[in-house]
Nucleic acid binder design. Sequence first.
DNA 1: AATCGCGCCTGACGGC
DNA 2: TGCCGTCAGGCGCGAT
Length: 270
Amino acid sequence: MPELPEVETIRHGIEPHLLGRTITDVAVREPRLRWPVPAGLSEALTGQPVEAVARRAKYLLLITPAGTVILHLGMSGSLRVVAADTPPQAHDHVDLCLNDGRALRLRDPRRFGSLHWTREDPGQHQLLRELGPEPLDDALTGDDLYRRSRGRRASVKAFLMDSRIVVGIGNIYASEALFEAGIHPGRAAGRIGPQRYRRLVTAIQTVLGRAIEAGGTTLRDFTRADGRPGFFRQALRVYGRAGQPCACGGAIRQRVIAQRATYFCPRCQR
DNA sequence: AATCGCGCCTGACGGC
DNA sequence: TGCCGTCAGGCGCGAT
């Protein structure tokens, strides 16, 4: 499931294939994604050069002079750059055809992903407007998290996964960052001090940075634009390791916190 | 205002 | 072997 490191890996992978290329056609074989793929995309995009391939939170932004394609990969979405005449397989829902005979192909078996089109500033789009800071920017500080967590009784894990607080952290990296910071995922967000929030921000940045360097985490179906898996799975310290020993000698536990499977070491995390 | 629970969807997996 | 029920999981939305 693509979280921030996986989306950043995809962005980096597709960027050289798109930058400066012109869109020659858009083929929508299955418009029923999380929201319907807008009609008239081909008319809007044909002839447009791709000026930039950007990312905001877990959204990919394909920026053209006429507007921006906003893409979310949901749980199972992937992007490949293929020869445009490659026969589409099951769940290959959308092709953006390029003027070099290739196409950017969106596959999404579970169809939790989405594709939006806006002619306005994408930052003002409904889906992006209310998002919190990027975790890898200096904009995110421990003092901010501390301030915004006051009075919150929900778990720090739920707090971290709230995209209005900070974006890009999903189920895997929430467990990993909290382990790295030595904070128990079930602790109420409002009962953690400023020092520990500063440590948490450092942990988030360390974990996400390392995951990006490794090309993301492949659990089952994540692949990069060229089809290779990511290699961060073997570097995961707690996620998916219930019952295995932590470095401290204790056993890693699994529990449902914030409605999701959560992994932690009860000895290292308080 | 914060929090919770739902629903979208398919493939994998386990039990019988 | 094959069928079927269950679950995972991002995230917006409505209910509380």
